[in-house]
Design a binder for these strands. Structure first.
Lengths: 135, 135
DNA sequence: TGTAACCGGTATCCAATGGAAACCAGGTAG
DNA sequence: CTACCTGGTTTCCATTGGATACCGGTTACA
């Protein structure tokens, strides 16, 4: 069985569920960090600004379950927990990092399009207000 | 101002919000379709199995707002609405399509890791049950 | 003359998710 | 004694997601 048998466009294909998991902003940011080397829980938390402990914990747990990162706890005082990327996780990181870079490179174009779109919406609302008979 | 000024790791950077929008399963699937040519609403709906009308409508609207697709309504009977990818949308499609392909190529490895993880969890629960003193 | 289906959507409802904040054990530093 | 470090879990609430019903307008079929 090769990968041609899987199809993310099919609702029940496990690929769909996997896509939902990996196409996630936190996943992109966390994997982007870990591919530079192992990191501890709170170190990741400080670097990924705005992530809550709960969501970081959940995301790491599910990345671990999928075999994309490995969690290692050292019996130091206080306990040290290190998260490292796996080879398959690294291959995913190579795939999602361009996504982050695309966002950083094209954000201005997006913001411009948004302003134009919202402006056009306002103008349409104005027109409807000034000649409500057209409703 | 160049793209080096933007940083998705900063909570308030608009790039973060954009990343959240584009790192989405429906966006990946829809852009993957549209880069083969324009498509009508219900045609997309039939190809992206399992998407609801509401979510498709919302996703397309936000893709349009961000300038990634263009919506064209033809006054035919019944009305024909066509969604086409823009050049910048196509560049995003080039970035997210590898994500879908990665999922399709690596799903088996993920499923294997999941089974191993869940199995280990069950064993740990069993051990805890058989010697509860360790709690 | 129904009536069923297609078009491209809204509107409504409820469950699941997301994030803020509190809390936890166990220990250190002041 | 208090405050803070470690790596989380729990609780709560608002936002979101998806299923379903509905909408006007038109066509095909019986």
């Amino acid at each position: 069985m090769n990968h041609m048998d899987w199809n993310a466009y099919a609702a029940l294909c496990p690929t769909r569920q996997a896509l939902d998991r990996i196409a996630d902003k936190w996943t992109v940011l966390i994997l982007g960090l870990l591919c530079d080397g192992p990191m501890r829980f709170n170190a990741i938390r400080r670097r990924v600004e705005g992530i809550s402990q709960k969501v970081l914990s959940q995301t790491l747990k599910s990345l671990e379950r999928d075999g994309l990162v490995v969690r290692t706890a050292y019996p130091t005082v206080p306990v040290t927990v290190e998260y490292a990327i796996t080879p398959i996780g690294a291959s995913l990181a190579d795939t999602v990092t361009p996504l982050r870079r695309w966002a950083e490179e094209n954000i201005e174009s997006i913001l411009r399009a948004r302003r134009a779109y919202d402006q056009a919406e306002v103008q349409m609302a104005d027109a409807a207000f000034n000649s409500p008979i057209q409703r």
